[in-house]
Amino acid sequence: MQPNKLLKPGLYSATSGDQKGATARLKGGRCRCGYVFFPMQTYGCERCGSHGDALTPCELSAKGTLLAEATVHLHADKNRPAPFTIVKVALDDGPVIRTVLAEDSAPVAPGQRVTGRLAAIGQSDRGETVLDLRFSIAS
């Protein structure tokens, strides 16, 4: 089996091996004040300004509820050929994130439950399958 490579390993991991289709876990953070954010950073808390030890990594579930979707028909950046669909998701663990809908996902609408999974998006120079986070309707 071909080895896999995560496109952005600083932002997410897989629940059980970095396999295509695996449910993702998001690498968020939590402040001592209770504020949960994504992605993890150590610069300081946007809510209270605490930094250093006050901020700790916190894995977030990639399950959530769709707030909005938009299919992009025009996009200047050739690395993102249109059309593709952007989703805005309220994660069950708090933060609201925006990313790409899986190409093979059924159409989505606000209010639906969605899940982030690892999807194959191409090949690396070394022949590895590159995986990135994509959302689709929760199964």
Partner: peptide, 22 residues
């Protein structure tokens, strides 16, 4: 220096297309 999932895919008109849908 902070990473993001797909901000390069979300130009202003897409930010407001999402708000239009909402």
């Amino acid at each position: 220096g902070i990473g993001n999932l797909a901000e390069d895919a979300i130009v202003p008109f897409t930010h407001f297309a999402l708000l239009t849908n909402e």
